[in-house]
């Protein structure tokens, strides 16, 4: 046995979504759902305990990643980071998500960890979840009493807490089809590449020439949840994107975030560099992913 011994639990292996949902209906308050497990198993080796773990390993149909120019991108509950990286559609139409997957953790973890797991973890430092926050999306939750859709904008309630109820299974995330002129990008800062981000930022801009028609700007590691920057978004929509406008944006960012001191960085440092990171991620989006 290894030194980090997991607490005891019963592993349940449903063979369909309906069976999984039935199990959640009866065990929901005392159950965790396991897809990739890269967060859950680490938690179980430290201080987390739960009576039942419902694994999606044998549930068919949840591993689909599909793109449709009209309907957008559908990411099933078992789609991994590597599935995202291997998708030419994601790389072309949702560069922010592809860039986040590229630097996400390590190859072994990318082969295992799921995109939906990253969203459900509700970490304020999540990379893929941040890229998806900028791109926008709707999560489909299924329970014994039916399905409902929750916008990502309403999904993260506080640190580690989401709008998912205990009896609900997250089935898929729907990301809208890109609009004409849509550009997106993701950037993060870490000490070494395997670290969690000390600061990350993602944008999705709808451009008409050098004018920005709509903008979603999201930032991580600066509050208890991922946050959007509404003032920055408003400035982006005001005028053509010029060096002066980028400087105004950079100067505004600090007023919209509330970082803390932690093991990865200090509040002071984050406040100082956040504006630069946002400016750079906007430039990255406008340059079509060329980091110059």
């Amino acid at each position: 046995m290894t030194s980090r011994v997991m607490a005891e639990f019963d592993l349940l292996l449903p063979y369909s979504v309906s069976e999984a949902v039935t199990l959640l209906a009866s065990h929901g308050d005392k159950a965790a759902v396991l897809a990739g497990g890269t967060d859950l198993l680490v938690a179980l080796k430290f201080d987390y305990a739960v009576e039942n773990i419902i694994s999606l390993a044998q549930v068919p149909g949840l591993d689909k990643l599909t793109y449709d120019p009209e309907g957008g991108l559908t990411i099933g509950a078992r789609v991994t980071l590597v599935d995202i990286l291997k998708s030419a559609d994601v790389k072309e139409h949702y560069p922010a998500l592809w860039q986040a997957a590229k630097v996400f953790a390590t190859p072994q973890l990318r082969n295992t960890a799921t995109v939906l797991g990253n969203i459900l973890r509700a970490s304020p430092a999540g990379d893929c979840s941040l890229a998806l926050y900028a791109l926008g999306g709707t999560l489909t939750l299924e329970s014994a009493s039916g399905r409902r859709e929750v916008d990502l904008d309403d999904f993260w309630l506080s640190y580690g807490v989401t709008a998912r109820k205990n009896d609900e299974l997250a089935i898929a995330l729907q990301v809208p089809a890109p609009q004409a002129g849509q550009k997106s990008a993701f950037r993060r800062m870490t000490r070494v590449t395997e670290d969690l981000s000390k600061l990350n930022a993602a944008v999705c801009l709808q451009m008409d020439g050098d004018k920005c028609l709509s903008a979603r700007v999201a930032m991580g590691c600066v509050g208890p949840t991922l946050v959007r920057l509404p003032k920055v978004e408003k400035i982006l929509r005001q005028a053509g994107i010029t060096p002066d406008l980028l400087q105004e944006i950079s100067d505004t960012v600090a007023s919209e975030i509330a970082p803390i001191d932690d093991i990865r960085s200090s509040a002071d440092y984050r406040l100082k560099v956040a504006g630069v990171l946002v400016k750079r991620v906007i430039m990255l989006a406008l340059n079509g992913g060329n980091d110059q």
Partner: peptide
């Protein structure tokens, strides 16, 4: 496909 054996439950690998 490389994975971490330490973060995988054996029973999910049937």
């Amino acid at each position: 496909t490389s994975i971490n054996g330490c973060l995988t439950l054996a029973a999910t690998m049937d």
